[in-house]
Design a binder for these strands. Structure first.
Lengths: 242, 242
DNA sequence: TCGGGCAGGATTGCGCACAATCCAGTGCGC
DNA sequence: GCGCACTGGATTGTGCGCAATCCTGCCCGA
């Protein structure tokens, strides 16, 4: 099978081909590739290249792409292919504002309950993230960091808010890829640990407030006031794939 | 053209046929029909019937239906047709909890700003709703009531939260259709008016708190502790359409 | 009369091939 | 040399017809 443009990881061989048999599977794969930044903002996703990558029909591929568009993780100018979304600064700010509203709610709900087992699960997530950072596996650590937020949402027991946080975390990956200032991410691991302590102590207002400040700090650590990181221009991206 | 099952309003004639030319148009129509309860929970939506209703191809119909499924407004058991969602009590509670979290945020944002023009827009919405109730146009009044919440979200300036509220209001229509206790809806018009006053006064904490209590009262006014309203069982619905 | 199995109807899935749309690049004229 | 117009390539849209799946209803046997 001829390798198409838009491959997800290196050279696709039968052994390394992403496995997906339907629209949902393809969607899950593409979603995860966006979250862990294997697919950066602006990356082009054409039906033909994905047909070759996953070895399934255009119909399922099209459905998976349409769902990414619906989730605002991709854009689809007519008859031009689908592109991984590249949020502008205004959209980035909207994402963080939405997260502050939603995650104040999820964090407060978890902290009201103050279930020790739930705090343990969050602490375990943090320990694993620290281990990955120490081992130099930064990309996986970043994935777990986003996973901390979705874990809080899951533990809140509200599937609607959990799904929302999951989507907003994915969109944040795109924002970070575009606007990251490498010096701005150092402090937030400590925030997570403090948050777990507040959850254990059932200090629900303090926990909600810390989560909101945490997200504000993450936002402030991004360079939203200048154009996106060079090298992620769609044209350059397309040239690379050509 | 032969009338199919699942028609949206009465008999479909060329003059009354819902106009939609693509998947987005069909989706918008079906979405609105769900919001204003012309399509109740459990209603069956088959591709064939919608092809006949809208006079467009199965492809666009299928895309519109899939989007409703992603939005949790419909469910699609394999090869059985698509059905308007019928939230159970647990899901209903999750919807209200999500709304309390999200709409506390949108209401607080609007109240922080306290823009008189925005307060005027909200007051105008309330006046129109009162006029419709007085004229006996209850269904349209209910539509505007949900519209009040989406208007608050729109005025907050966050398109992400606005879209979320729009979807949750639609899902609330389904919940109300299933669990409505007619005595439980009398008080909430007054809440809206008081909310507008708090927004004018820039009392953002009070406004957010009132919105949350308002939604809790609406939830308490529903009979979530007993099976859904008789007559909306899917099987009875199917019999009616057959 | 009741229960189990099978067949057919209802419905969506999907491959194929052609249509439609968009725009980049090239060629020509000024 | 530059600007405009056109064409062809890239890409998705979509109709058609058949495949696949699911379940209800009917028939037959005990």
């Amino acid at each position: 099978m001829r390798q198409g443009a838009g491959r997800l990881v290196g050279v696709v061989t039968p052994a390394t081909r992403p496995k997906a048999e339907d629209a949902e599977g393809v969607h899950a794969h593409l979603f995860q590739a966006i979250v862990d930044q294997r697919l950066p903002p602006g990356a082009k996703l054409t039906e033909q290249s994905l047909v070759e990558t996953f070895d399934i029909g255009r119909r399922a591929i099209g459905d998976a792409l349409r769902r990414l568009v619906w989730e605002r993780l991709a854009v689809a100018p007519p008859n031009r292919g689908v592109f991984v979304a590249a949020p502008d600064a205004e959209e980035a700010r909207a994402i963080f504002a939405a997260r502050r509203a939603i995650e104040a709610g999820t964090t407060e709900a978890v902290a009201r309950r103050g279930d020790p087992k739930q705090a343990d699960a969050l602490a375990a997530n943090l320990a694993e993230e620290a281990r990955l950072r120490k081992a130099g596996r930064v990309r996986e650590a970043i994935g777990l960091s986003g996973g901390f937020h979705t874990l809080v949402a899951r533990l809140s027991g509200n599937p609607i808010l959990e799904e929302q946080v999951r989507l907003l975390v994915a969109r944040t990956s795109l924002v970070v890829a575009l606007y990251e200032d490498r010096n701005g991410l150092a402090c937030w691991h400590d925030d997570h640990a403090e948050l777990v302590a507040l959850i254990r102590a059932r200090r629900h207002r303090a926990a909600a407030g810390l989560m909101q400040r945490h997200l504000s700090e993450l936002e402030l650590g991004l360079r939203l006031d200048r154009p996106p990181t060079e090298g992620l221009d769609i044209r350059l991206m397309l040239a690379r794939q050509g």
